[in-house]
Nucleic acid binder design. Structure first.
Lengths: 194, 194, 194, 194
DNA sequence: GATGAATGAGCTTTCATTCAT
DNA sequence: CATGAATGAAAGCTCATTCAT
């Protein structure tokens, strides 16, 4: 009955992520993961010794893809960032649902929390570096580029949160005006630099 | 054996909130609520017909207090808002943990989601109204006051999220510089108004 | 569906002892206990929070009965003791199977081991006290009554072990000759006392 | 990937015995055996077609060594026997733990029980033969040498059992006095023989 | 009103066993 | 020979829910 090598760890993680977003962490059962992946429960357990480990592997997987995405960035980082951010906050954004679910899970699991903290720190750092390319100095005196990065990241997450809660959230409008804000800030800088 | 009225619904809700933050939604059990409140499972069940109902009552309770707080606001709304926001985002802020936990719970429970949506909408509205008091018009052309409210709220939630994930998050510094940003924006407006 | 008060803890322990002897510790499952008692697994768990606790309660129950039996002893203690011992070592003696099963279980569970240690100590003590009644002094110089008690107890357990292993073990013959040994020892004492 | 003959059946049995004593029969798993031996589960399975077979092979292994030991005996058999017996009953005697574990296992597995019965019978027989060397006739009338053998064996097992249960069991004292008992009995015989 | 014994479905986890490689 | 991925049945355990008292 044992069919060797029918499934890979990555396929299982993909199935698990689907389940997590579909059923929520409250009903995130290994049985569901197994069914989604088309294997038995025993198989899931063979690959991840515990449920917690599977959850952690999901988080690590996300960290990995997050890192990949960041390292690809170039050129007009901001425009691109806004584009990405916007894509993440459609009303049922897979990514942000997964992310927030894991964040909440991290409140009671330090291993998970630390991994997520790593993502945030990386994102903030990448953002600060990219800001440096377009803002030789901060557009407003007294606000460091690091803080700008924190704030921008916070805005993106906060908007995503609102969008996930509210079916009628004006994603387009908000991001359009957010871009104006950004342009205005960039303009300020030129003024100051004179 | 039955003791009349030994516990009120509100006490149970308070215990339930404690449990929710302490154990997370994954381990939020009625037995834990009962033990925390010092009653039996049956008693919890007597007051809330189902577990979902208890969760919903927690959400409503939060909505209520949120509303109370908003209606008290006056005078220098911004400074006060920042103060409130800051207090909510210490590394283990009870409020934001509870809020985010419920948000995630709301992903798969429309009743909860709608209640939380209501909170957000109210907060945004209250914020917009208060902004009007200090900003007769938007400091940056093309950005409506409603959008400003959305953005400000998003920043607060997003920063709280980062603070909850990161033990070393620079809460003080971030909020100090955020205030500068706000002052600068207010300054902009005066310029434009001339 | 919930029928209150259909079973008592003692009934459950009785069923559990039956299961333990019938299936052995390897297959001692709470499901089997529940079935034997005619209740659901949940009920077993309601009364004993874990499997280990149930096992421990069985041990305590045995300690209790052991103690009761000891305190009833009087008159010709030895004859009676031999009778009891003999009854315990028929080829499938419930008592000794249970006892040895728990002893082995105690090898990896200190709580169980300590309880059983208590039984042995009590038995040895009771035996020593009763020996004193019939042997004012030890029949053989250099052997304390405490040691006699240990040895006698050991003989009884050791014979039971052999009887449990061997279907053809000569219980009657062995105990008959053991009694002769005892009488001979008592005779020795009188000689020495002169 | 297959490495030829990296492990022998005997090594596996040795590992299995370790596991059995370390974890007890309740947690005696093939995975643990495999890990202890440093091979995979499949390998254990390759050598012993079932778990039961492995257990049986352990029992046979013990029978073998038991037999070896008996056949080596000579000279002052009693003194040596007591020495051996004493060595087996330190508080965590590997041998007696293993033996008792298997005895209990034998309660529900006739193949195991029969093997162990064989050991006991052999031991009793060897003991009777050796007693004959030093006791031309029984020191007490009416007690056959066979019964003496049974009783002596029983004492040894019974004492070991008490020692395994009780950390403070007076092994030295008990065996010293047991030897005195033996010497006294031998003295009796000489008297009778006159 | 309040209790707590009982339920039963479903959870995570374990494990002997199989089998293609 | 040996492996190790996969299985599936069954284990221990949890929990929302019910109900007689």
């Amino acid at each position: 009955m044992a069919k060797p090598n029918v499934i890979s760890k990555n396929e299982l993680i993909r199935s698990a992520k689907k389940c997590l977003v579909k059923n929520g962490i409250e009903k995130f059962t290994l049985r569901a993961v197994a069914e989604t992946a088309g294997v038995t429960q025993g198989t899931v357990y063979y690959h991840f010794r515990t449920k917690e480990q599977l959850l952690l592997d999901i988080v690590k997987d996300i960290c990995g893809s997050s890192w990949d995405e960041l390292s690809k960035s170039d050129g007009n980082i901001i425009k691109q960032a806004i584009e990405t951010a916007k894509s993440r906050c459609s009303h049922d954004s897979f990514f942000h649902k997964l992310f927030l679910t894991l964040v909440v899970s991290g409140f009671h699991n330090d291993k998970i929390r630390e991994q997520l903290e790593g993502i945030i720190l990386q994102e903030n750092k990448a953002l600060a570096e990219n800001l440096l390319k377009i803002w030789p100095s901060s557009p407003i005196k007294g606000i460091s580029l690091d803080t700008w990065a924190i704030i921008l990241n916070a805005v993106v997450d906060g908007i995503a949160l609102q969008a996930l809660l509210s079916k009628n959230f004006p994603v387009e409008k908000t991001y359009a005006e957010l871009e104006k804000l950004f342009i205005a800030l960039s303009g300020l800088q030129e003024v100051e630099n004179k």
